[in-house]
């Protein structure tokens, strides 16, 4: 059972969360007119075999989107932090 250490709610089963994919990509700025940038962001994935930073939302908990560090080769779980940078309302 993948257990995710939610910064708000503690370690919980992954079934309480919604997966959001690779958190290593930066979404183009809103209004960016580069079709190429959007294409790459939306459709291309690093999909590494190893260290992965990924989004999870604690939908059945605090509803916060988190960034979890997880190794996709071993399944081992690192830390999770809030996706929203600190200090932002």
């Amino acid at each position: 059972m993948l257990r995710i250490p939610c910064p708000h709610c503690g370690e919980r089963d992954y079934t309480e969360f919604r997966y959001g994919g690779d958190a290593g990509r930066t979404r183009p700025a809103h209004g960016s007119q580069s079709v190429r940038a959007w294409h790459d962001h939306v459709f291309l994935f690093a999909n590494p075999k190893g260290a992965h930073r990924e989004y999870w939302q604690h939908v059945h908990g605090c509803r916060q989107w988190l960034v979890l560090e997880r190794d996709t080769a071993t399944g081992s779980v690192g830390r999770a932090s809030l996706a929203r940078p600190p200090g932002v309302p």
Binding site: G21, D22, F43, L44, P48
Partner: peptide, 18 residues
């Protein structure tokens, strides 16, 4: 299952998640 991994040897990203 390993398409991304093998193609990453060429620096290519694919529209694939494993």
């Amino acid at each position: 299952g390993h398409s991304s991994h093998v193609m990453s040897l060429l620096g290519m990203r694919l529209p694939v998640e494993s």
